[in-house]
Design a protein around this nucleic acid. Sequence first.
RNA 1: GGCGCCAUAGCCAAGUGGUAAGGCAGAGGUCUGCAAAACCUUUAUUCUCCGGUUCGAAUCCGGAUGGCGCCUCCA
Length: 464
Amino acid sequence: MALRFKNSLSRRVEEFVPIEPGVAKMYTCGPTVYNFAHIGNFRAYIFEDLLRRYLSYKGYRVTQVMNLTDIDDKIIRDSKARGIPIKQFTAPVIKAFFEDIDALRIERAEHYPPATEHIPEMVALVKVLLERGHAYQIDGDYYYRIASFPKYGQLANLDMQGLKAGARVDADEYEKESVSDFALWKAWDENDGDAFWETELGKGRPGWHLECSAMSTKYLGKRFDIHTGGVDNMFPHHENEIAQSEGATGETFVNYWLHCEHLMVDGRKMSKSLGNQYTLRDVLDKGYSGLAVRYLLMATHYRQQLNFTFEGLESARAALERYNDFISNLESYPGGKSDGSAGGVISGAAAGFEETLDDDLNISGALGVVFDFIRDINRLKAEDKLSAGERDEALKLIRRFDSVLDFRTKAVSLEAEIEDLIRQRTEARKSRNFAQADKIRDDLLARGIILEDTPQGVKWKRKV
RNA sequence: GGCGCCAUAGCCAAGUGGUAAGGCAGAGGUCUGCAAAACCUUUAUUCUCCGGUUCGAAUCCGGAUGGCGCCUCCA
C-alpha cells in the first residue's frame, strides 16, 4: 500500500501523490515569537518532524518551510511595554525556540522565514488581490472580500451564513463590508509605535494571515503538496490562506492539509490563553529529558487528543530505556548460532513498520512493530540463536527505524571521576566487598549513572 | 445554536466485519553476590450503555450517556 494521509480538505484518507515525483514540499505553521512555546505547540512540531522524516524514509526529497511570526499585536504590545525595538524583543525568543527544537531533536526545516523580512512579498500579494477584486481598502486598512471567494469555508466546513448569524462581531471593525472579512494590512496608529512599514499600501503592518500565503509561495511555489498546523489553525488561519493564495493565483494552493490535534492538560486544551501551559523548560527543570518529551508527544497519533501527564512522561522514559538498552545490548552481543528465524523477524518488522506508517502516520502501530521486533530479537539473543551477521542486520534495521524516530540516546563519555568510581567498585566486587560496591552503585545511580554487571563485565548508561 | 472528534485493562494506546497489538505499572519464575538488563509465565471471555444488521460486530447502522474541540487570539 502506498503512503496516504487524512486530508482535512476532503475529510478522507487519500493516497499521497506529489506534484513533482520524488519531491515533497510542505509548509508548516510556526511559532509566534512573543513568548516561550509550550509543549502543546511542540506537539505540532513533533508531528511535522515525524512527517518530514517519514517522507525522507520513503525516499522523497523534502523541502519544509516553517514561518516565524515576528510581528503581531502581542509582540507590539509587549515590546512597547519593555521599551525595546521589536527585533530586540523577538531575538531571544527565536533563540530559545531553536534551542527547544534541538532539545526535542526536531530536524531543522529548510527555511525559517520571518514575517518581518517578507513585507515586500506581502505588499505585492495584496496588490494582486486588489486588482482581482478580492481586496478593498478603507481608511488605510485593507480587507479580504470574502464574498468574492465562493469556496470560503470549505476547509473548516463552515457555513458562512451561519457564521454571520453567530454574531461574534468586533465592534470597532464595523466599517468592513462584511463582518467576516479579515484584515490583510492594518494602517498604523499611534499604539503601534515603531511597528510599521512605509509601503505602496501606506504606512502600516501586515495582517496575521498574509505572511503564510506570501512566504509559502516564495519558497515552495504557487502550488505545493502539504500544509500542516494545529486544528485550531484550520479556521480562520488556513481558510484565509486558501482565500488569499487561490484568490491571487486562481490555482489550487495546497493538495493535502494535515491538522494535528491538541495536547490536553487536565482534560483541557493546553493554551497560552487558558494559562495551563507547560513550556519545555518547565518539564526539563523537573528532571525529564527532551527525549522523553519527544517520545511522549510522538507516540500518540497526531489526530488524537493527547492528555499530558507526568505519569505519561515517566512511562515514555521507561519505554525509551527499553529501546536504547536493546540497541546497546545488541551492539555488544558477540553473536551465536543462527536457527534461521531472524531473517523473517527482520523482514517482517521492516514491512510492518512501513505498512503502519503508510497509513496516515500510524505511529502507535509502528511502535508496536518496533517493540515486537525488539522482543523477538532479544529472545533469539537470550537463546543464543542469533548469528553475528543477523545481529548486524537487526542493528541496521533498528537504526533505519531510528532515522524516523530518533529515540537513540547520544553517546557521552564519562567524567574521569566517575570512571574512577566504577573502577573502584569493580575492585571492591573482586575482593567481595559487596557493601562498598553497592554503595558506589547507589551513589552513581543518584547521579544518573546506571550500572549493570554483565558477562562481558560492568556496563554503564545514563538515565534517559 | 451550527460543525466536528472521541470513549478499548490500573495508566497510555493500536486494531474499523473473522474472534482483543504494543508501551508503562503489577505478580510469579530463570539468570545474578545482590541488583539491573534480558527472557518465560501472568494481568480485558471483552472494547461506555441499549437496540438493530450479519453465520460472525470493539469495528457497520440507530439511539442514549459522558468528554473534548472549532465557530475570527491560538499548534
